[in-house]
Amino acid sequence: MPGLPLIPIPHPLAGNGPALVADKAAAIAGEVVAALCGDAATIAATHAARFTHLTERRLSGGAVCIDAVCAIDPAVAQRAGGGGR
C-alpha cells in the first residue's frame, strides 16, 4: 500500500530489553508525530517510495538485513560474550 506511513525500527524487537525498546521508541517518536498530523497527501507522498528500493534490491551482496543497524540487544550480546559454561 504505497503511502501508508510505516515507520521501521531495527530488527529484532522481541528479544530486546526494556532500555533498548525505550530507546527505539524515542528514536521514532518524531516520525510518528509527523505521520499522525498534518496534510494526509503530504504524508502519503513522504512515505510513497520509502520501501520501494527494498523490493528491487539485488542479492549480489548476499542475503542482507533490511537495515544496517539491526543487531542483537547489546546488553544480551555482552552477556553472551562470555560464551556460557
Binding site: 530488527h11 527494498l54 523490493t55 534490491r57 542479492l59 542475503a63 542482507v64 538485513c65 533490511i66
Partner: peptide, 10 residues
C-alpha cells in the same frame, strides 16, 4: 513475489 531472504523474506 520478491521473497529474497533477509529482505522481504524475514
Amino acid at each position: 513475489g520478491g521473497a529474497a531472504p533477509g529482505i522481504l523474506d524475514r
